[in-house]
Write a protein that binds this DNA or RNA. Structure first.
Length: 432
RNA sequence: UCCUCGGUAGCUCAAUGGCAGAGCGAGCGGCUGUUAACCGCUAGGUUGUAGGUUCGAGUCCUACCCGGGGAGCCA
């Protein structure tokens, strides 16, 4: 009977049969006349048991010599065994070496952040990082499925942009054939144009912020998904944001429970994320935060301590709306009942993960928007195309942006955003 | 940019101003059910850099470099 080539994740379908697995040696525990080889293949880790009596002498001695992370091809019979991590193990009949690994830098014990980041290309192989990347994939897929199932059109917005939309200090400037261009910090303005063409759209891609932020909640390159919808008001936007976040969390629990358990996430906290989410106006939120013992004056934007205090006070994401206009961008529509307020909403994640969504109803009146651009000292000429959207069939519209890394960090319960993206770009760190 | 903590073996960390050490990893040997296996042995150091104080500095002082965490700003 020829051995079947398969992957570790599917071993339970082959109990009693001979299989071939291609992978890397994760760890070895040898006991004289028996070797226990932990082999990872990307889909999982399986223990291969090699007894000296079952294999030729040269195979047994090869198993004794191979180093951690050497690439190997193993053949063996699949056996259920309670003693094996994962429930099944392989009784090895053959072992072939693809390439012997040099001394592997990452050991079994803890490492520091600097060392791990310098070895990010190898760190990705470790169990926790592997699990986080799979959760990230599930989150991204949930995001796409949510919009695709609801008749949104995916619109890819440009990464090179001609001018600043929210001030130049936080933009990366690049040369562009003798001219200047900037890396995008949001696809929103282009998304608005696309929404006037398609009704409901989303853009999804990397965004760049040149903020000199050196905290666990910041990256200079991060991914953001931004839906934009025509004929909608702030309440409608909040309804969508709420349903969207609930959908992402529960789809991820469904498809990645094993990974969340592996990284020891308290899944019950995620299961509690069900609509409706608490909604409060900015003014109500300020009162609440002050009553919780964290100080804030009306008119100030929330800092990390305020977000954390508010987020910790609830076991669901909190939606804060009707912000003082001074804290928000020029394109947000003002509250018709109170000019001091902007029709914006922030969604703050529980457990101190901070703002995961920022959204708003956009200003749809031509004259008002033009006035705002001038008030913000932005070059009106650069925004003529954007003003055109108000000249030619303007409608109430809006949307929001969700930060993928902050969402993944929250769902995984990991401290630092650097672990939620394969190759993090951070202040003063762009290797590997 | 500011505040704060740190930099000692490949990695993680110890060392009252007085002989620079352990665990892991590596090498060698032992062990037929190990779970970050275990046991024995071996190798491995310009203590971030430059200066200073001192009989004597990893330890105290000054400057600089690098990194972590945080503030501001934000997803």
């Amino acid at each position: 009977m020829a051995a079947i080539e398969t992957i570790v994740a599917k071993l339970k379908d082959h109990i009693g049969k001979d299989v071939v697995i291609k992978g890397w040696l994760y760890n070895r525990r040898s006991k004289g006349k028996i070797h226990f080889l932990q082999v990872r293949d990307g889909s999982g880790i399986v223990q291969g048991v090699m007894s000296i009596s079952d294999v030729p002498e040269e195979v047994f001695s090869l198993a004794d010599r191979i180093t951690q992370e050497s690439s190997i091809i193993i053949t063996g019979a699949v056996k259920e065994d309670k003693r094996a991590p994962g429930g099944v193990e392989l009784h090895l009949k053959d072992l072939k070496l693809a390439a012997m690994s040099e001394e592997y830098p990452l050991g079994k014990k803890d490492h520091g952040a600097d060392f791990l980041l310098n070895n990010r290309h190898l760190w990705l192989r470790s169990k926790k990082q592997h699990a986080i990347m799979r959760v990230r994939h599930a989150v991204v897929k949930a995001i796409r499925d949510y919009f695709d199932e609801r008749d949104y059109t995916l619109i890819d917005t440009p990464i090179f942009t001609p001018a600043a939309c929210e001030g130049t200090t936080t933009l990366f400037e690049v040369g562009y054939f003798g001219d200047k261009a900037y890396l995008t910090q949001s696809g929103q303005l282009y998304g608005e144009a696309a929404a006037m063409a398609h009704g409901k759209i989303y853009c999804f891609g990397p965004t760049f912020r040149a903020e000199k932020s050196k905290t666990r909640r910041h990256l200079t390159e991060f991914w953001m998904v931004e839906p934009e919808i025509a004929f909608i008001d702030l309440d409608g936007i909040m309804d969508i944001a709420e349903e969207f976040v609930e959908y992402i969390v529960h789809r991820t629990i469904e498809t990645r429970r094993a990974e969340l358990e592996m990284i020891e996430r308290d899944i019950s906290k995620l299961e509690a994320v069900r609509r409706p989410f608490p909604r409060m106006t900015y003014t109500e939120a300020v009162e609440k935060i002050n009553s919780l013992g964290t100080e804030i004056k009306w008119g100030e934007d929330f800092g990390a301590p305020q977000e954390t205090a508010l987020g910790n006070a609830c076991d669901k994401p909190v939606m804060v709306h009707h912000w003082p206009s001074g804290t928000k961008a020029f394109y947000m529509k003002r509250d018709p009942n109170d000019e001091r307020l902007a029709l914006g909403v922030d969604v703050i994640a529980p457990e101190g993960y901070g703002e995961i969504i920022g959204g708003a109803q956009r200003e749809d009146d031509y004259e008002t928007l033009k006035k705002r651009i001038e008030e913000h000292n932005l070059p009106v000429k650069s925004f003529e195309w954007y003003l055109d959207l108000r000249r030619y069939g303007s409608v109430p519209h809006g949307g929001f942006g969700l930060g993928v890394e902050r969402t993944v960090a929250w769902i995984c319960g990991v401290e630092h955003l650097r672990e939620t993206i394969p190759f993090p770009r951070m202040l003063y760190r762009i290797y590997p």
